[in-house]
Design a protein around this nucleic acid. Structure first.
Lengths: 328, 328
DNA sequence: CTGAAAGCGCTTACAG
DNA sequence: CTGAAAGCGCTTACAG
């Protein structure tokens, strides 16, 4: 194990000079050469623990995610990671397995590890979250959920859903089932529903019914079966996520309902798989990678005490595929 | 910021006593009480940098992954993470974006951060890898690829593929296309092919042809088109991964080839999506989560200087769904 | 069982 | 531009 003292000795200078060299301070040309040689020779690399202990700060950004095995989460994380890497920051992941308590713990734990900031892929912000963020006093960015006092990067759930609603109406659908999720989730549960409802306002002869599912595919299948058997007979099911749409598609196949001839389906997300399946799923694509990168950029600004808008809105794109029948 | 000295002062004891208390050393009952109270009062938690600086070791396990947006990778990582967490170790992820050089860098970087061990989700082990692992001198576990001198956890590629071959033959298929990947990838490219070939040995009237694809879906689509247009007309395409199978399915749909009536398809992996699509994909399921957990367990043993078998083999399971036609 | 002291590898004023 | 010294928060022999 070779330390800064070794380098100092080899180069024939003081430790403080080596440290200054390492941290970009002013060092004479001759000494610079000597130090460079010594470092080269030995392959020296500073001990990050000693650095952090003194400097009382790190280049670590803690990222808290509810789950790792989701398209949205993994692509967001990749976006964060890339951006951070480019700026010589390091991302540390805490996977909480959708356990809110673990989320809170992770906030304190990152703070304890002297993380320079925390990025939270948010589902629900509870008072305990607010309290924790208040307590740790380090920059925080939320992804996916808006908040009155905290910085966030969100997807444009409302407008994406408004556009999707308009698209569906434009294609001639009038009996529409909306399959959403709990309103505890503001972004997915509330805003997507509101956007859809807004679109309906301009369609007096539309008839819509609202149903609720969990996020996972089996739950969505069951929800679809409830819709099938409630004698509403919609021409389309607008689903609040791609996964829910996948569950609906599966339920339809199992019941022998042809998509889109007998039933149309749409999703939200733009997961890769929606393009691969048959029929391709019409969906509102969000840009997870980009949103992650934006969050990372904003975080670095926050760390540098720069101004950052409280809410950054990421864009969306309606992707037309084959799962929506054209009735007009 | 409250330190061990503060606790010592408040409790009226020496720092070393507090340290001993913290590390489970022998401390008198009365002092124990006082220290506990002081810690409680202040919410003290030790500075991990100072700890690591002194102790010269950490509870960090570095995990190097080629990509994060893959079913296999994310589930393996989740398995590692859970197991590590249970044992008070922390997982640090390095996502290399399939860049071999970054893999090598990550090895050195983890070593520099004093990681207690490194787990590598391996695709190809180059001499540079071997050199790096030699140099850093910390426990290493490979996942997914076997190695003569390094510890690894692998999937049972050979037997899974043998079983899959036998299954396909048993269902009456005789003209079989095998769509594999580069032999640089020993596990996927070589072993799965060998297992399949082994199964064929017991089928004298079988006719097999071998094709090659990349891992991604568009490449698999193109490969499928090559197979379609080479007038071999197999009754089945055995694909080396689920993703490749997905690409083949997509190509078949686009050409109007019905699955499984006109063409059967199988995969390897057991990704969740293979169950959701229609027809469901017959595949050899691997247990990524479990393999990750096994790797983590083995790593902890290695750290504790316990014996660990050089190669741990994870199991597999053939999952029958609808994508294989029964010809007998 | 407990404490004083040294030291881990670095950085940061402070002099010169 | 350069160096000596103090100190970051902890742990670890060593005495007692």
């Amino acid at each position: 194990m070779i330390t800064i003292s070794d380098i100092a000795k080899i180069a024939g200078v003081a430790k403080s000079t080596v440290s200054r060299f390492l941290n970009g301070g002013s060092v004479g040309d001759a000494t610079k050469k000597k130090i460079e040689r010594a470092i080269e020779e030995t392959g020296y690399t500073p001990n990050p623990f000693a650095q952090s202990l003194k400097a009382k700060k790190t280049n670590i950004i803690g990222t808290i995610i509810p789950r790792l095995d989701s398209y949205a989460a993994s692509h967001t994380v990749i976006g964060i990671d890339q951006q951070l890497k480019e700026n010589n920051y390091q991302m540390l992941i805490s996977n909480t397995s959708q356990n809110i308590e673990r989320e809170i713990e992770s906030i304190y734990s990152f703070s304890n590890q002297k993380a320079a900031g925390i990025i939270l892929l948010a589902t629900e912000i509870t008072p305990a979250h607010e309290e924790a963020f208040e307590a740790v006093q380090i920059p925080v960015i939320l992804i996916g959920q808006e908040h009155a006092h905290m910085h966030s990067v969100i997807h444009d759930d409302f407008h994406a859903s408004l556009s999707m609603g308009q698209y569906v109406i434009e294609k001639g659908h009038r009996k529409i089932a909306y399959l959403g999720v709990t309103e505890k989730d503001i972004a997915v549960g509330v805003k997507r529903k509101r956007g859809f409802q807004k679109a309906l306002e301009d369609c007096p002869d539309c008839e819509a019914r609202y149903f609720e599912s969990e996020f996972n595919i089996p739950a969505a299948q069951q929800a679809a079966e409830r819709i099938f058997s409630c004698n509403f007979n919609p021409s389309i099911i607008v689903c609040a996520t791609d996964n829910i749409a996948l569950g609906v598609l599966k339920a339809a196949y199992q019941k022998g309902i042809r998509v889109p001839a007998e039933l149309s389906v749409t999703g939200f997300g733009g997961y890769d798989i929606t393009e691969v399946i048959h029929p391709g799923l019409t969906t509102a694509k969000f840009f997870y990678h980009e949103a992650g990168a934006t969050a990372a950029k904003n975080m670095l600004k926050l760390i540098d005490q720069e101004e950052v808008e409280i809410t950054s809105i990421s864009k969306y794109q309606i992707i037309e595929r084959e799962s929506v029948d054209i009735l007009v």
